[in-house]
């Protein structure tokens, strides 16, 4: 019952419009990347889109929502795959990475809103583990990080991402700097890291479902990032691995927060 009641000012933001905003946030970075990479990037986006559409059509009859058309979220995912992988990636590797990500990270668990994983993280992890690649030439790497600033502002203003998660992420990396980890500022100099933090690490799907859980998940992810990235700063493979570990542990953090809350609530009510 999503309701943009005519005559009410609020609630223009329906689910599909919010999802469209995720895509629009990527547009500046995409345009800048197109200037350098041109055709290969367009090809990669199209391949990723076609793969996602294929899986949607294949699985739609089995799911309760039965939707056959790609959502804006999935179109965003296709762009993220193309931006975070090298432009010269063989097409079959791209198809396999996208397929693994969308099937095991999302469709098998019921789709967005049921899953606790980000399909892009799952797909990139698959690619990382399977082909033993070294990522240092991502498409997004050639784009200045300022291109993501409009997206950051819009997401925070509309509460698409939690400022708590983002702050905790940076704070987590900052704390570990004291024991020798790289400074978060070094992280942020790379536009790859900025994109990953904003679109993958702060995605509300993988974060906690309460404010305390958001703080804790952010801190945990930030610390993991700092620890794993210690030997090689800005290496995408270690960041993706850290995100995978963090999103796998987020449900546990969520559960612990609920247990803590219910325990304190019982004492308060009694």
């Amino acid at each position: 019952m999503t309701t943009a009641l005519p005559g009410t000012e609020t609630f223009f933001w329906t689910e599909s419009r919010l999802a469209l905003l995720w895509l629009l946030g990527l547009v500046p970075a995409l345009l800048l990347a197109l200037l350098t990479h041109k055709l290969p990037l367009v090809g990669n986006i199209l391949i990723a889109l076609m793969t996602l559409q294929l899986w949607r059509c294949a699985i739609a009859p089995l799911t309760s929502d039965g939707r056959y058309v790609l959502t804006w979220f999935e179109i965003t995912q296709a762009c993220l795959f193309a931006l975070l992988l090298p432009a010269a990636i063989p097409a079959w590797q791209l198809v396999l990475a996208v397929s693994f990500g969308t099937v095991f990270g999302e469709r098998l668990l019921g789709g967005r809103g049921y899953t606790f994983l980000n399909p892009v993280v799952v797909g990139l992890s698959f690619h990382l583990f399977s082909y033993d690649v070294v990522w240092d030439n991502t498409v997004i790497g050639t784009v200045p990080e300022l291109a993501l600033l409009p997206a950051l502002v819009a997401f925070l203003a509309l509460e698409l991402v939690s400022w708590r998660t983002l702050t905790a992420l940076l704070f987590g990396t900052f704390c570990l700097q004291l024991i020798g980890a790289p400074s978060p500022l070094v992280f942020l100099e790379s536009s790859t890291v900025c994109l990953v933090l904003l679109y993958l690490a702060a995605d509300p799907v993988v974060g906690g479902s309460s404010n305390l859980a958001r703080w804790l998940t952010g801190l945990f992810t930030g610390s993991l990032l700092a620890i794993l990235a210690m030997p090689s700063i800005g290496q995408l493979s270690t960041i993706i691995f850290a995100l995978l570990l963090a999103s796998l542990s987020a449900p546990l953090i969520d559960h612990l927060v609920v247990q803590l809350y219910t325990h304190r609530r019982r004492r308060r009510v009694a």
């Binding site: 019921g110 049921y114 509460e159 708590r164 509300p204 799907v205 309460s210 404010n211 958001r214």
Partner: peptide
């Protein structure tokens, strides 16, 4: 239906 825990 799928449900994302947004801060809202």
């Amino acid at each position: 239906l799928g449900f994302v825990a947004t801060p809202r």
